[in-house]
Design a protein around this nucleic acid. Structure first.
Lengths: 156, 156
DNA sequence: GTGATTGCGCAAGATTCTTGCGTCAATCCT
DNA sequence: AGGATTGACGCAAGAATCTTGCGCAATCAC
C-alpha cells in the first residue's frame, strides 16, 4: 500500500509522543516537538491521512476488568491451501477470546493472542473450540505470567 | 493491584468506544454513550484514575515506516531461577527489535514480539543476539504473514 | 419518613481546535 | 544567476471543546 514515508525529525518526534500518549492535546504536542500548534496539527492530520498513524486506542487493564488469563496459542493446520487458511482466519474473528491473530510461517500457521476471565474458560475454549475445530492439527499454548516489555510498534 | 472494578453499561460503552478511537472528543463520546459531556468526562477520568484505562496509544503502520518484518520468538532458557528469568527480561528491554515481551509458562519461557526493517536484520538479531545470549536454550521463530484480527484488549 | 449519598445536566469561563492568511526560506526552472 | 514556485511556518480570530461549580432528582440507609 503506502509508499515508504519520508519523515523528518519532527514527524518522528510526533509519532513517538503519540505512541506514548495518544490523547495528548495538540498544544502540548506542539510544545514538545518544538513548533507551533497549527503546523503541528497539520502534520498529525497528514500522518493520519497517509495511514502512518492507523488509529488511536485506549489500552485497558485486563485483570481489573476480570480478565485474568492472557495466553498465546500456536495453531497448526492439516491443510494450508488459500481456502483453508482463510476459513480459519474467519473463524478466529468469531471467537471473542481471541483478541488478535496473525497468520505465520514456521512450525505453525496461526498465532492467537487470547484473553479469558479464568483458566477454566480458557481451557474449555482450547479443548472444545480450538482443538476440535475442523482442519486444526496441533495447538500449543503459552500462558503468560506477566508482560515484561510493552513499547509501541515502531521505535527509532 | 486494583480490586475488580464495578462498571455499569455506560462505562462499558465508554471503554468500547475509546478502544475503537482513543482520541475521540469527549463531546462525541458523550453523545455516543447517551449522557451529557460533563458526567462523561468524569467517568473517563475515574476510569483513568482507577487504572482501568492504562494509557492511550497511537497505532502505527509498520510497513509504511520501513518495518517489513513482524515476528514472534518463543525462547526457552536453560535455567529458570528467579534471577535467570529477571536477567533475560532485562535483556529484552535493551533490544529495540523486541517491541513487547511476556514471560510465559509452557514449552517456552518467553514470548517476544519483534519488529525489524528486513529479514536480514531480523535473522542477524536472532542468530547473533538472541540465540547466542547467555542461558538461552531454544529459539523458535514464527514470521508473520499478515494480521488477521486486531481487536482491543477487552471485549464485552 | 428523613437525611445522606450519588450521579445527572445546565451554565460559564478557560482552554483548545481549526482555518485563513501573510511571511520566509528552499528549490526549481529558465 | 535570478526570478518564480513551492512548501511550511507562525499569527490571529472564530468555533468547538474542556472543565468546574452548582442545583436537582433518584436511590439508599437508617
Amino acid at each position: 500500500m503506502p509508499i515508504k514515508a519520508d519523515l523528518d525529525a519532527i514527524d518522528w518526534k510526533i509519532l513517538r509522543e503519540l505512541q506514548d500518549d495518544g490523547r495528548m492535546t495538540n498544544v502540548e504536542l506542539s510544545r514538545r516537538v518544538g513548533i507551533s500548534a497549527p503546523p503541528c496539527l497539520r502534520r498529525v492530520k497528514r500522518l493520519e491521512d497517509e495511514g502512518i498513524i492507523q488509529r488511536y486506542r485506549a489500552l485497558l487493564n485486563a485483570p481489573a476488568l476480570g480478565m485474568d488469563v492472557v495466553a498465546f496459542c500456536l495453531v497448526g493446520l492439516n491443510r494450508q491451501s488459500e481456502v483453508d487458511l482463510k476459513a480459519f482466519a474467519d473463524r478466529t474473528r468469531n471467537w471473542p477470546i481471541v483478541r488478535s491473530a496473525w497468520m505465520v510461517s514456521g512450525e505453525s500457521d496461526f498465532m492467537l493472542h487470547c484473553l479469558a476471565p479464568d483458566l477454566g474458560t480458557f481451557q474449555t475454549f482450547v479443548i472444545e473450540e480450538l482443538t476440535s475445530s475442523p482442519n486444526v492439527d496441533t495447538v500449543r499454548t503459552a500462558l503468560t505470567i506477566r508482560q515484561v516489555k510493552d513499547d509501541g510498534l515502531v521505535a527509532i
